[in-house]
Simulated scan of single mutants.
Amino acid sequence: MEEANLTVGQVAKRCGVKVSTLHFYERKQLIRSWRNLGNQRRYKKDVLRRVSIIKAAQKMGISLAEIKQTFASLPNNRTPDHTDWERLAKHWQHSLNNRIQYLNRLKDYLSGCIGCGCLSMKKCPLYNAQDKLAELGPGPVILDNFSEEQ
């Protein structure tokens, strides 16, 4: 069995994160450490992959809660291997594609009426007279409804 012999500083340096980030991930149960006889944290090498996957997923906009849920789906909550990573990536692609479509819509229509109900723009009375879009729900309903339909 692999020994937990990496210090928190070594892991932080290798992963490009702050020590406090590792402590935070541990509190969120995304990574695990062991304590040595001096009560200092020690990590197994596979934590490097877990932290790297967490960072990559966060860059894609995946929440820590979803990352935790995905890690929990692995047998014995083990660190994802190459096959697992492919499966995780495919799972997250659908969510990312929806987010990309939403961001493209936002980019294209940010200067126009988005259906938020403010009616402060000259175009809003044309698209959302008397805030009729409020019947469709809260928030920027033109953007939200478009992204959900895609």
Rank of each mutant, 00 (worst) to 15 (best):
N77T: 12
N76H: 14
G9W: 00
Q101I: 07
N104I: 06
N77K: 14
Q93L: 11
Q101E: 04
P75T: 01
Q130L: 11
S120N: 08
H91T: 13
D144A: 06
L22H: 00
D46P: 02
R50S: 13
K68Y: 05
P125K: 09
A72P: 02
Y127E: 09
N97A: 14
P138G: 14
R42C: 03
C113K: 00
P125R: 10
P80W: 03
A4P: 00
L37Y: 12
V141Y: 00
S20T: 15
T21Q: 07
S111H: 15
S73G: 12
F71Y: 07
I114F: 01
G61R: 02
M1I: 11
W85H: 08
L48I: 08
V11M: 01
A56F: 04
Q29C: 11
K122W: 08
F71S: 05
Y25I: 10
L110P: 05
N77F: 12
C124P: 03
L143S: 05
P140H: 01
S95T: 10
M60Y: 06
Y25V: 09
Q69A: 14
Q10P: 05
Q40P: 00
K59W: 10
N36W: 03
L126E: 12
K44S: 06
K122D: 09
S52V: 02
M1Q: 12
M1N: 12
Y102N: 04
E3L: 08
L119I: 07
W34S: 14
A4R: 01
R50G: 04
D81W: 03
S111T: 15
R41C: 04
S20F: 10
E66F: 07
Q58W: 05
E86A: 06
M1T: 12
A56N: 06
P138T: 14
E149Y: 07
I31C: 08
L133T: 00
S111Y: 11
I142M: 10
R35H: 11
E66R: 14
S52P: 06
G137F: 01
K44D: 04
V47P: 00
V19L: 11
C113H: 00
K132D: 11
V11A: 02
L119R: 09
F146M: 02
E3Q: 13
R27L: 10
I100D: 04
G38I: 06
A129W: 10
G61A: 02
K55M: 13
S33M: 03
F24V: 04
V17R: 06
G9V: 01
P75W: 01
